[in-house]
Write a protein that binds this DNA or RNA. Structure first.
Lengths: 333, 333
DNA sequence: TCCTCTTATAGAAACGTTTTACTTCCGGCG
DNA sequence: CGCCGGAAGTAAAACGTTTCTATAAGAGGA
């Protein structure tokens, strides 16, 4: 419990606290000889700057918040890796919030982030409620949306075109001859799920089918377990010729359950997922999927956020939209 | 940029700042009528407590640090989920640090955590250097080791018996007739990797084989990609009858590379992984693995840490050691 | 030598809480 | 009737930085 403060360092080095602070924050402003003396004192005493005091006085911290929908999903893990890399390069710490699909939990997490006076927040919102994000902005906290289009012009956002992705996915299986299509999705409060469905419907229309015939199976969470349950529903209701899943976790669950029930994939049912997580290529029947630039999503979002924080005057808000890419594998052969 | 402080709330409610603080921290101490008035003022003004000021004055924060070796590994993701759940139940925020296997990065992350004056740190150390953790303790930061035995008696730790796990894994393939065994491992600076190897050697000894014959292939990172490379080495050097991988990510990579090269698993080579991540069961050839109580590891470690922080006098340090469990699947049939 | 200008450092105020010691008010008891 | 004790609230100090203003010390020019 040493608790050595800037004052102790100052005393030990025979300078004033202000000078120590300068050594810490603007080393150029202090004469080399003094600086060395102070640095020696710092390491001798094992001084560690008190971040809270610094934040309090300076009015801003060196931390950012990251709020994701499901940290168990490799998609978000990879986003987080991108975020972490950039943040740590620029000397920022990342506070992680997992909303686990619950808007309540997300709200609580955002509250914690606001209390911590994070510099900014990266968020994949789990619902459509721009108001709560505006509240953060009112507290001087920048917000960048990740995997979600911007709510407003004066805001950065990094997204992937989900309608196009849904369309491409559905078009792919329809082009291989499927005439009946099911869509296994997470909660339809999640924008991505809705847009991928709209894309799928558009593809059906383009193929001369009635989009109303798209069989939608909605699950509470987007996990493999939920996928297994959904597959049971599909089997019970009569199998479609193709199944499009809103993400790979669901698809892997569906796949597992189908195979266990003796259904052959892709011969009886074609299956396509979304995200192209690492494990999609390695599954029993390798999984066709829509690839997204996941790590880049995290990197770029963080770069935008920190640019907004560190250079508020020159910063230009950007809305970046990536295009997903189809990766065909065995499950739709 | 409203920045409404406790003073504004006090003025608005016609009380002193001290009373507002009491409403926030010890609601019992203030008369119901006043309390309501203050609470009304708080929500009317949209007041959010300044965490840094609070930390500065109170001397401790409501955040903990979590330092893991690879957030991209589902093993750690699940640990993190357990941590997050408990922390958020008890009103703590979690700062995530990903050491990515680098001791430097881990050091930097710990420094950030120390600056943030986190209440405690949960860490799966990426090397054996108790000194740097002791430094945290000197700053009044409690440390709980996760998936690692305790360095010292006055410290909590939650671990899984890796020697036993390595022995069980190797014994399993040896019992199925394998006489030549390779061990694909991450950096041998990581304790888990070393202990699983020792376990494997013990199993060889028990089976009447020379432990010196264990063929060790060391990789820089414990990822699927590294596993693919390792498989190339194995093939080049002549295939063993069985391969034991230090984790499932490596095993999935090895599996992918073997199959691509036309090697049949398990007929030509038996393969066993470690961790039993979700995807092990879903892979091309389902993967035999050692299951660990991952989520529980995170939960319990966090409970221990927060108990140590919140009840320092009644807290009893614990060293918990779980036993891993073999899950046999196709890859060793 | 004196004055000015620059540079380096000192000193002090301020950030928003928490907490301690203190005041005020009241009801009840001797 | 006076006093005591408890409850409720106030006032002020303190936490460890950062940052602004002021001062001191040199350097250089006249």
């Amino acid at each position: 419990m040493a608790m050595v403060s800037i004052k102790d360092v100052a005393a030990h080095a025979g300078v004033s606290p202000g000078t120590v602070s300068n050594v810490l924050n603007r080393p150029g402003k202090v004469a080399p000889a003094t600086r060395e003396r102070v640095e020696a004192a710092i390491s001798e005493l094992g001084f560690v700057r008190h971040g809270s005091a610094s934040t309090l006085r300076a009015g801003h911290s060196r931390t950012i918040g990251l709020s994701v929908i499901d940290i168990g999903n490799p998609f978000f893990t990879e986003v987080a890796a991108g975020v972490e890399d950039v943040a740590s390069e620029l000397g920022y710490a990342v506070i992680l919030g997992n909303s686990a699909g619950s808007q309540d939990k997300e709200e609580r997490n955002l509250r914690v982030l606001a209390e911590q006076r994070v510099r900014g927040v990266l968020i994949t919102p789990s619902g459509e409620d721009p108001a709560r994000l505006d509240r953060l902005r009112e507290h001087g906290i920048s917000v960048v949306l990740v995997d979600h289009p911007a709510h407003r012009p004066d805001q950065c956002a990094v997204a992937v075109d989900d309608v196009a992705g849904g369309r491409a996915a559905a078009a792919h299986v329809l082009a291989r001859g499927a005439r009946t299509l099911a869509y296994v999705t997470g909660p339809l409060t999640i924008r991505q799920c809705v847009e991928r469905r709209e894309g799928a419907k558009a593809a059906m229309r383009a193929a001369g089918l009635d989009p109303g015939d798209l069989r939608v199976v909605e699950t509470a969470t987007m996990t493999a377990r939920a996928g297994e349950k959904a597959a049971a529903d599909l089997i019970a209701g009569g199998l479609p010729e193709a199944v499009f899943c809103a993400n790979d976790l669901l698809a892997l669950g569906v796949l597992r359950a189908l195979l266990r029930s003796g259904v052959r994939v892709p011969e009886e049912v074609a299956l396509i997922g979304y995200d192209d997580i690492d494990f999609a290529a390695a599954s029993t029947v390798s999984l066709t999927s829509m690839r997204q630039p996941t790590y880049q999503l995290g990197r770029i979002a963080t770069e935008l956020l920190l640019d907004e924080c560190d250079n508020p005057d020159t910063h230009a808000h950007q809305h970046i939209m990536f295009q997903p890419e189809l990766v065909a594998r065995e499950s739709t052969q």
